[in-house]
Design a protein around this nucleic acid. Structure first.
Ligand SMILES: [Mn+2]
Ligand SMILES: [Mn+2]
Ligand SMILES: [Zn+2]
Ligand SMILES: [Zn+2]
Lengths: 168, 168
DNA sequence: ATATAAGTAGCAACTCAGTCTCAATAGAGC
DNA sequence: GCTCTATTGAGACTGAGTTGCTACTTATAT
């Protein structure tokens, strides 16, 4: 059941919280309760998530002390991207976030049926990118590569459905 | 002054208008004046454009006969994508369109300073994509690869500015 | 050509993600 | 603790894109 393609975390000197505090100080910003709550929540596990999910978890249903408002969720997400802790990508017109700090560079296969993002690493892709960039005297700083299609499970489901229909 | 990397058009049997008419008929849809105006306008030259630009050109400033309303611009853009005439991509949270029918597959370098999109073709990229997909038993149907960075002209501009500052 | 049926255009109202304003609050440093 | 300033949260706002509705086209059949 274990995923043979799962990516391994990268060793980093500072915890995400510590890195964020460093960033905030460098900008004359303050280490506040809402920022602490949000970063704690976000870095408790690796996954792809959006602002809406965080708002649900931290703003609506959450009561009392660990509550963070909608504007603050958005503001803090921007800071986390700005500070290099999170990476942002746009999928289907909506912003999706994931860990950047402490997590290896990778790209994604996007299943258009189940909306799952499958991660993969490719050194070749990076080389190709840099080659193309240098051919155009372009100074590349980052990239987004998303392959759209249908994942293994969804292919199986579809085939099963088809077979069932064929019987009629 | 001519771009050595410029992509060449692909030969196609039907004009975009004819292909669109074919698509519309197959869907029981009608060949209306607004749809004709819009597709005529869009396929008069190859460039990257957004809904807002079209609305400006066809809805606001345009008067009388060749006017198309905002909802119809959006509706028709969706049909053009659906029919395979246009390709849609999201850049910086907004939808950008370009010719798909009669134009070769390619990807983009995106200059974050002047917002220019530079096109390039790479057979290797396609191979790499299919290789990765098959490794994950993923059925790839399309992809979006955008390299962010700074284009040649913008690098020159920045260097000039830097030099000027150094003199102070 | 005329009638008829169905799809479509345009308007205005709406949705949804994300941002902004501003008064009240809470960090940081002394 | 006191002061100064950044930040929060509520709600208003924005901008891209969509939708409900009615009047109008378009396609097709007399
Ligand atoms: Mn990922
Ligand atoms: Mn292009
Ligand atoms: Zn799937
Ligand atoms: Zn540029």
């Amino acid at each position: 059941m274990s995923d043979p393609f799962a990516l391994e975390a990268v060793d980093v000197a500072l915890s995400p919280m510590e890195r964020f505090e460093e960033y905030l100080k460098s900008k004359g910003k303050r280490i506040t309760q809402p920022r602490r709550i949000l970063i704690e929540h976000v870095f408790s596990h690796h996954e792809h998530f959006d602002a809406d999910g965080l708002i649900d978890e931290l703003s609506h249903h959450s009561k009392g002390a660990d509550r963070v408002s909608r504007p603050t969720v958005y503001r803090t997400l921007n800071e986390l991207v700005e500070s290099g802790l999170l990476r942002k990508m746009e999928i289907g017109g909506r912003a999706v976030y994931e860990h950047d700090y402490g997590y290896p560079d990778h790209d994604h296969l996007y299943c258009t049926q189940c909306q799952n993002l499958i991660e993969f690493q490719s050194a070749e892709l990076r080389e190709l990118r840099d080659k193309v960039a240098s051919m155009h005297n372009f100074r590349a700083t980052s990239h987004r590569f998303i392959v759209n299609g249908v994942c293994e499970q969804c292919q199986k489901k579809t085939r099963r459905k088809k077979r069932r229909v064929d019987l009629i």
